[in-house]
């Protein structure tokens, strides 16, 4: 039962990386859709939409991700539907990402100079055209760096799915540690894997930001 840390343990943790990546990808894709909706609702003229979006952002940015995971995990059952830990984690992280991306993108949309809005009004463009052709493309450029930065936060956030029992990288590390009792090696290794995933993104985010601020410097 208790064994030395060996190649199979290394591979077990290495293979768990794909679950971390999958969960991150799902949450990011879902969060991109949700975040766009939230951001558009936040900047809309409609008070109800923007109020609801603000409430959503406040709640998800003001409560721990771990509790959001627990609530989704145990909460969906109330409706008589059972979910796997992967699905629960995917839903919770999607909501979480929607709130953060919604707030980042709201800022980006509002950073587009007001003259652009007015000019597209003056051209008689409707809401969809105005957003699609004028505002969002410019906002997208502004938002790239913070969005990549958030992706790092999201990848790290998937580690909490371990607590509801989803076997991603952190849980894999715990399971191996429970059989080998070599925490220094095991958690050190897991940390290195996370670092390999996150560091290039962090560097990219920083360079994008630098390039952007140079481009907009007057």
């Amino acid at each position: 039962m208790i064994r030395e840390f060996g190649t199979s343990d290394f591979l077990f943790i290495l293979f768990a990386v794909r679950w971390t990546l999958l969960l991150s990808a799902i949450a990011f894709a879902g969060g991109a859709v949700g975040g766009l909706v939230i951001a558009l609702a936040r900047v809309s003229q409609n008070r109800i939409f923007s109020g609801l979006a603000l409430g959503f952002i406040r709640v998800f940015q003001g409560t721990p991700l771990l509790m959001q995971l627990f609530l989704v995990f145990f909460g969906i059952n109330i409706f008589g539907i059972s979910v796997t830990p992967l699905l629960a984690a995917a839903i919770a992280l999607t909501l979480h990402a929607s709130a953060f991306l919604g707030e980042i993108w709201r800022g980006s949309i509002q950073a587009v100079p007001g003259g652009q809005h007015e000019a597209s009004w003056a051209l008689g463009l409707g809401y969809l055209d105005r957003m699609k052709s004028i505002i969002l493309p410019q906002a997208a450029r502004i938002s790239v760096a913070p969005t990549v930065g958030f992706l790092v936060q999201l990848i790290k956030g998937t580690s909490l799915a371990s607590i509801i029992g989803f076997v991603e990288m952190t849980r894999a590390g715990q399971i191996i540690n429970n059989a080998t009792f070599e925490p220094f090696t095991v958690f050190g290794l897991v940390a290195v894997f996370y670092f390999i995933l996150c560091w290039p993104l962090s560097i990219a985010a920083r360079q994008l930001e630098r390039r952007f601020s140079r481009a907009t410097a007057r």
Binding site: K156, T170, F187, G188, A191
Partner: peptide, 10 residues
Amino acid sequence: NTPFIIQIFF
């Protein structure tokens, strides 16, 4: 670039 939960385990 590493999760807090790993840091605290460590």
